[in-house]
Design a binder for these strands. Structure first.
Lengths: 237, 237
DNA sequence: CGTCCAATTGAAATCGCTCAACTCGGGTGG
DNA sequence: CCACCCGAGTTGAGCGATTTCAATTGGACG
């Protein structure tokens, strides 16, 4: 097996999806100096806890990360799933404190972007500031879409929408658009979509009975993407 | 009546809430040069339509604005309510197209921030880029909170949470924290919170019967903020 | 004074939740 | 290597919060 630990953005297959989008050679090099690559984290490890002081953003290099927040009664709510090339921690930038926690759903590696360095760099390299703004805008946009889903679509649409979202995001990263393994539990899915675990379970079965998907534990196969798309009024990323 | 049209951020009562936060004298002056102040728009007028090309951000100077998006079947979903000092259009920055439309809920004035100018300016004045990032992060954070509300809180909590949010935001702007008039219809509220209009109506009545609020058409009086707060597990801005 | 849209109210239907029991698979330790 | 155990996931039944449908009221405005 080849050496897996990428040493620079230049070697990383996520260049086109991650922060470096649109940077030229020299900007690229400057950015790399700021990035700290961590060794892989095991499944279930925290990257930061809710309430932790904000020091860095993190780019997911491999694996999957969930973010969650905790209500005053202690209940956990999943707020997002993050795939390689996606950035976490952006919601902490305004207060300096992480409103949500972040936790690996499988063995994952991350690139740490110390924010004070990044801020300095952004002053000298305007493209980096622009790219950061673009990424946040993207996130804002997808939150809006999720909000509409959760607010007004039936449970089945929400679940399908999540699968379609994962499908396109994985596809962009070079994986199959129709077959993937969920790294999150049914409970995580339910929490994210605002559904009870039992509902998620029942819907998976129903979708399978309708020959729309195939479910084997956490292995999912989308059998008819077009029909699935038609069933969702709102597409979300 | 005094002349109402503010000619500069320096004269504007929203300095401490709006984009100029944290800028010094000279930065301030540069920012002002970029801003185009529009004349008041009547109730129900569009600032931009969903699908419009993105050219400018807008700061609400007075009045209230709602943003909404449209599903493939034509249904409208309210995605946000914006008060003076708040910025709209941030979700368009990533694609260059407005995913949502924006519409006044009452007579409102806006400050236009042409984005290409703002981008140029941000290169020269790092504080402006920082402030933009902070505002987007803030927005991201409040979307997360709303998402949790809508995803997993009962209808009553959601409505209360909206009122509490409006209350604190209005208070910060120098208005009463306990008495305000809703500029949005019951339908807007329902759409925003993921509830049927009828449910909104019934809940208002119920809250009034419990002596928690007083409702007179669109006039709302919060009678017991503390108790209202206790009823909401998740506070949202 | 009539029209029209917003808001309210009531009754019935439904979707998804809760509670509870049960199954399955993976890991652990004897 | 097998038996056991435990958490994740599934399944069933009943319930309840919201929705939907339908009818009415009320205000605002021409």
């Amino acid at each position: 097996m080849r050496k897996r630990l990428k040493v620079a953005c230049g070697d990383c297959s996520l260049q086109r999806l991650c922060l470096p989008v649109g940077l030229d050679e020299s900007e690229f090099i400057k950015l790399e100096k700021v990035i700290a690559r961590g060794k892989p984290l095991a499944r279930g490890k925290h990257i930061y806890f809710p309430g932790d002081p904000f020091t860095s953003l993190y780019a997911v290099r491999s694996g999957t990360v969930k973010t969650y927040s905790v209500a005053s009664d202690g209940t956990e709510y999943v707020t997002g799933f993050y795939l390689p090339g996606e950035i976490i921690g952006l919601d902490a930038l305004c207060t300096g404190v992480h409103p949500c926690g972040a936790k690996t759903l499988e063995t994952s590696s991350l690139c740490e972007l110390p924010y004070d360095h990044l801020e300095d760099l952004a002053e000298r390299v305007p493209n980096i500031a622009k790219q950061l703004l673009r990424i946040m805008s993207q996130e804002l946009h997808s939150d809006e879409k999720l909000l509409m889903m959760v607010g007004s679509q039936p449970a089945k649409s929400r679940l399908i929408a999540l699968f379609l979202s994962l499908s396109t995001r994985l596809y962009r990263r070079g994986y199959s658009a129709t077959e993937f393994t969920l790294s999150m539990s049914r409970a995580d899915i339910g929490s994210y979509l605002g559904l009870a675990v039992e509902t998620v379970s029942r819907l998976l079965k129903k979708l399978q009975d309708q020959n729309l998907i195939e479910v084997d534990h956490r292995q999912i196969k989308l059998l008819d993407i077009d029909r699935l798309r038609e069933m969702v009024k709102l597409d979300f990323e």
